[in-house]
Design a binder for these strands. Structure first.
Lengths: 208, 208
DNA sequence: GCAGTTACGCTACGGGTCGTAGCGTAAGGA
DNA sequence: TCCTTACGCTACGACCCGTAGCGTAACTGC
């Protein structure tokens, strides 16, 4: 929800916040019904009950609109303390998988990432609106594990950041790949196997 | 390269294999220049020096065409025996990352996966043309590691298959996520950290 | 050779989406 | 009240889609 950060022009008719909400909801509905590739700006405008020009006054195009429409779904992600690192990992994996099972996110996430490979500003928007929101969970989970004594504290901030990035890519990447590429379900059994692998590694996970 | 498996109709003018090659190469060139979203069938036809109707005689549309055009790039992936499981993992990670740095694959891979979430036949095509080709490397690497004594043999075929699928999703998913979502390079340092994490797990990788 | 069959190049077309311009009207602030 | 900005609506040229139709090219079997 950060199309234009500057607070607002102080004069003239203000932008309708109701229209904002209606447009984003219409975008999600259109994603569910039509999917990314068949979603059109005209259709979204019709569903939202606004003129097409209103959409273009706020978003540069389909890419930016869909990112903002989907971003709020990632706010649902939480990380309640489940008592152990293993339980926390398994919990977040299942939660993330649930999110990826929704048709809006399935069809939109990969599509906007694909677009972002040729559009730097879109990539930054995705990062701040979606990716960074997930990464917080990794940082929080590590803190807790360190407080519990399950993980030791890193020596310096630079390796700490590298480790967090690595773990984030492994967890998010594995869940996304399993769900969207392999197209097979992330159930409790898979989440359990993955967690064991992540914690103990290939060498140690041979008991599964 | 398996649009139509049946050997060929035995009568009439045969399809030009030269046109096949020219079209697929033109598709890759168009992906490099224009990217997935701006690639059009007309442009590919012009580049290949064939009529647009010729494209539609062989492929149902953009999705299928791009999958076939990109699939051959994944044949470059190999898994030479580097002497240890760690070296093999690190090698395949770097090789896969190199492939994902090419502009054709960057822009195409995520896009066709996104499309496949709403198109079952496309998903099967991707699986047989791309995904299964990578999975072989995992199976081969595991065999070697088991022969070396680095991994023990699984008790039954079902858990063996589950493990292979899991490892595949973790490796491919992590590299794809790092490259295309986090948009940061997979260099030797990252590959080394990932390999350590994969082999030893979070609990054991604390020395890094 | 000759007929039969299929592929190819080319043109043309209706249908759809894009993104914008122009206008009159609505909703706030000085 | 004047000024400024947002909104709805219409219309538009541009582009791409996917297909139909036709004449020509290539290969097979008689």
């Amino acid at each position: 929800m950060s199309h234009t950060d500057p607070p607002a022009p102080r004069t003239g008719r203000p932008r309708s916040t109701a229209a904002d909400a209606a447009i984003l909801e219409a975008t999600r509905a259109s994603l569910v019904d039509l999917g990314w590739s068949k979603l059109t700006m005209g259709d979204v405008a019709t569903r939202a009950g606004v003129a097409k020009t209103t959409l273009y006054r706020r978003w540069a195009g389909k890419n930016e609109l869909v990112v903002d429409a989907v971003a709020v779904l990632f706010d649902e992600l939480e990380l309640p303390d489940r008592g152990s690192l293993a339980a926390d990992v398994q919990g977040v994996v299942l939660q993330f998988a649930t999110l990826l099972e929704r048709p809006e996110t399935r069809t939109a996430l990969m599509a906007v990432v694909a677009e972002s490979t040729r559009d730097d500003s879109l990539r930054h928007r995705i990062r701040s609106a979606i990716v960074d929101r997930q990464k917080r969970l990794v940082l929080l989970g590590r803190e807790r594990a360190q407080a519990r004594g399950e993980l030791r504290y890193e020596d310096d901030a630079s390796t700490a950041a590298r480790n967090a990035d690595l773990i984030f890519d492994v967890i998010a990447g594995a869940v996304v790949h399993r769900t969207l590429v392999s197209a097979e379900p992330v159930d409790a059994e898979w989440a359990s196997g993955f967690t064991t692998l992540l914690l103990l590694g290939l060498s140690g996970a041979q008991t599964a």
